[in-house]
Amino acid sequence: MTPVRSIDLLICDCDGVLIDSEIISGRVLRESLAEYVPLEELEVLLNGTFGLQSRDILARVEAHFGIRLPEDFHPQQRARSEAAIHREVNAIAGVRDALLSIDLPLAIASNSRYTAVEHALQRSELRERVDIGIFAAEQVERPKPAPDVYLLAAKAAGVAPQRCLVVEDSATGATAALTAGMQVIGFLGASHIPPEHGETLRQLGVEHLIGDMRELPALVRRLSYLPAADVLP
Score class of each variant (00 low, 15 high):
D72E: 13
G66K: 09
T115L: 07
I102Q: 03
V149R: 10
T115M: 08
C164I: 09
L152P: 10
R163D: 14
R127Y: 10
Q139M: 15
A107Q: 00
L69N: 05
R163H: 15
Q162R: 13
E125Q: 03
A153L: 11
S112F: 05
P145I: 04
R123H: 12
L99V: 03
A156Y: 09
A120D: 14
E138T: 00
A79S: 07
N111L: 01
I134P: 11
N111D: 13
K155Q: 15
C164G: 08
A120T: 05
P147N: 09
R163F: 13
S81N: 05
D72V: 05
E71T: 13
A98F: 13
I108M: 06
I102C: 00
R68S: 15
S124R: 03
A137Q: 08
Y114C: 06
D103A: 12
A98P: 08
V149L: 01
I134C: 03
S124E: 05
Q139E: 15
E71N: 12
I102V: 08
S124Q: 12
A120E: 06
L106I: 14
S101G: 06
V130L: 03
D97F: 00
Y114Q: 07
L126H: 12
V130G: 03
A109R: 04
N111F: 00
R129I: 01
H86L: 14
Q162I: 10
A91H: 02
I108E: 01
V89W: 02
R96D: 15
P105R: 05
F135I: 07
R78D: 10
L100H: 15
E141W: 07
A93Y: 10
Q77T: 10
L126D: 06
Q122C: 08
P70D: 11
I85F: 00
E71C: 07
R78W: 15
A116T: 09
F73N: 08
S81D: 03
K155L: 12
A120N: 14
R163K: 15
A146Y: 15
F73V: 12
L121H: 06
R80E: 02
P145S: 07
A93D: 14
D148Y: 12
V130D: 00
F73S: 14
A156W: 02
L121P: 04
E128R: 08
P145W: 01
E128Y: 03
L165G: 10
S110L: 05
E88F: 00
A109K: 10
R68N: 11
S110E: 07
L104C: 02
P105N: 12
S124K: 02
I132N: 00
L99Q: 04
R113W: 12
A84H: 02
V149G: 11
I134L: 04
A91L: 07
P143L: 01
E128W: 04
A136M: 03
A116C: 02
E88I: 00
Y150G: 01
A153E: 07
H86F: 02
A79Q: 13
K144Q: 09
P105I: 05
R123D: 04
R123K: 14
P145N: 06
A160F: 10
Q77M: 15
R129D: 01
